[in-house]
Computed example of a mutant assay.
Amino acid sequence: MGDPKFSRRSYDTPSHPWQGERIKAEVVLVNQYGLKNKTEVWKAQSVLRNFRKQSRELQARLRSGDAQAKIEADALLNKCSKIGVLPVEGATLNDILTLSEENILSRRLQTLVFEKGMASTVGQARQMIVHGHIFMNGHRVTIPGYIVTRYEESSIMYDPASPFNDEMHPMRISAEQAAANAELKASKEAEEAAKKAAEARADAEEAGITADDAANQEGDH
């Protein structure tokens, strides 16, 4: 069972330590989201891997007519919707399979503090959270990697006792910078939507080609 004073590791490390492409991709994510180290990337990947595993298993059980699987599938979709990685309505188990690490990392408190215009950089957002300048749901939160739900997102604010509440604070972000952050977030969302649309079109075209090939083969016979 292990020593109860030491929690079990909640993430999986890469199967091979020296993979150039993977290392480059991890460095990009660390810099983009202001992460402390690659461990935070691996945690996001483990969460995503768990969601995908549940989705595949539930789809197989649904095809076999398992009634309990429908209840568990709804619970999984509600959970993903609650943390903001899937839309509130219209999501399916297949949508979970298209999620990426960015979807999980974008829901971290550190990322949202930056995107809300409360910090000029993601690095500053992390420092503000660790130093206790951020409130959420009326409580101080000092964990940059906390996954924020849709309902908690609107409650993110400066600690009432924080000097950042003073608009003249020298480290307070300007309105122009806040607008730039909002524009950056919008462009990322548009890029992600375009990427998913392109993948959907590619899948549809491939399915169409496959159907045509099958029809041609039947005609030849």
Rank of each mutant, 00 (worst) to 15 (best):
P144N: 13
Y146R: 04
Q110E: 14
I134W: 06
T142I: 13
F135A: 14
L109F: 08
A119F: 03
L112D: 00
N137V: 01
K116H: 12
K116T: 13
V141S: 10
R108V: 08
I147G: 06
V141K: 04
S106M: 15
G123F: 07
T149C: 06
A125F: 01
I129W: 10
I143K: 03
I143Q: 02
G138I: 02
K116V: 11
V148G: 04
A125W: 02
V141Y: 06
S106Y: 07
M128A: 07
H139D: 12
A125T: 08
I134Q: 06
P144I: 03
R126P: 04
I129E: 15
Q124F: 04
I143F: 01
M136S: 06
T111L: 00
L109D: 04
I143A: 04
M118F: 14
G123H: 09
I129N: 12
A119K: 08
K116S: 11
I143L: 12
N137W: 04
Q124A: 06
V148W: 15
T142Y: 08
A125I: 01
R108Q: 12
T142H: 07
P144H: 05
A119R: 12
V141I: 12
L112W: 01
M118K: 01
R107Y: 08
S120D: 10
G138R: 15
G138Q: 13
A119G: 09
M136T: 05
Q110N: 12
A119Y: 09
P144Y: 08
K116D: 11
V113H: 03
G132N: 06
Y146Q: 09
F135W: 13
L109W: 05
T121C: 08
M136F: 12
Q110H: 09
G117L: 11
Y146F: 14
V122C: 10
V141L: 15
H131A: 10
R107C: 00
F135Q: 15
N137M: 10
F114L: 00
R126L: 01
R107V: 05
H139K: 15
G132V: 13
R126V: 03
G138M: 01
L109K: 06
E115D: 02
H139P: 02
S120T: 06
K116F: 07
R126T: 03
E115L: 09
Q110G: 08
H133M: 10
T121R: 00
K116Q: 13
R126A: 03
R140T: 15
Y146K: 11
S106N: 13
R108N: 04
M128V: 09
T149W: 02
R126W: 00
G145N: 14
I147P: 04
V113I: 12
V113S: 03
T142C: 05
R126G: 13
Q124Y: 03
T121W: 04
V141G: 05
G145Y: 02
I143Y: 02
T121Q: 11
L112R: 09
N137K: 13
P144F: 00
I134C: 08
L109Q: 06
Q127M: 14
G123T: 05
R107A: 02
M118G: 07
G123A: 12
G138P: 11
M128S: 01
F135T: 08
